[in-house]
Design a protein around this nucleic acid. Structure first.
Lengths: 148, 148
DNA sequence: AATTAATAGTTGTATTTTGCAAATAAAATT
DNA sequence: AATTTTATTTGCAAAATACAACTATTAATT
């Protein structure tokens, strides 16, 4: 039996580098963490700071400063929540949305290319496998509780 | 069809957090990048600085300083290569090896737990899928050339 | 052989990122 | 009304990063 961790390590490193590369294309030029933040805000509906920071496994203070940077860059908007004025709600500006979309398109373009080396059946199998993996990781109680 | 990038993002983020958590268990307490460096040195046979830095997609100057730290901590040994005295060969000390092994065991323990939520057949399928994925990513010319 | 170019790694320096502790400010609980 | 909890921000000091310039060694060119 092959080393399973090794397989994961190679895969995630490749995907990580892809993510990194896709941050500095064209007009877009942000850091990897910033791109992850944009992604996460885009995915959710007006999440709070806490929620996004926790999802990314980031310290809230570091996160707070990163958000300040993104607000300064005009990519993120911070809106106070009327019901609870301690909380700030995050959303993407038009430009932030544009950048998130550009990065997303670029990454999907790469993934398409990768899957083009497979048969349709293999592709289906791989995708189903990753889904299953994610479900099982979510079930696991040992470690890593990012509530997807 | 589901969003493929999303699946990857969730999976790699979970695995990334796992990696991070496993750096600070018991006696072990190193940073995530340092653990990646240890892993990569352990995997190869006396790699050069360049090789490891490139594999990790790190700037060589940053890498150089990280190695200095790891040498100071007594986890890594730097040996000049006799045939080419510009080159340094990297290896783990006994303690470095111990730490790398501890982390590896911990991560595999988690992965076992994750796979325990599947049937044997599913597990086989998932592992074969990741292998296939790695092969196809290696084939791809678009992006991310870390030569595993 | 002497000179030049290329390669491997290090250091100077300035910027960015990080995270703990402490602060603020607004709920929620007593 | 007083206390506690929660969400976020700042002070600060340490760590990580990367560009440019450097040293040392080997390879290539003349």
């Amino acid at each position: 039996m092959e080393n399973i961790r090794e397989l994961f390590q190679v895969m995630t490193r490749r995907f990580g580098l892809l993510n990194k590369n896709c941050c500095s294309i064209d007009v877009v030029d942000i850091s990897l963490v910033q791109s992850h933040i944009l992604y996460e805000i885009d995915k959710r509906e007006h999440p709070s700071m806490q929620q996004v920071a926790e999802a990314l496994g980031m310290d809230i203070t570091t996160f707070s400063r990163q958000i300040q940077n993104l607000v300064k860059k005009g990519l993120v908007k911070k809106t106070p929540l009327p019901e609870d004025r301690r909380v700030y709600t995050l959303s993407l500006t038009t430009e932030g949305k544009f950048i998130a979309t550009t990065i997303d398109r670029e990454i999907n373009r790469y993934l398409d290319e990768v899957f083009s080396h497979m048969t349709e059946f293999e592709k289906e199998t791989v995708i189903r496998s990753i889904k299953l993996l994610n479900e099982c990781m979510a079930k696991s109680s040992v470690c890593c509780k990012p509530l997807f």
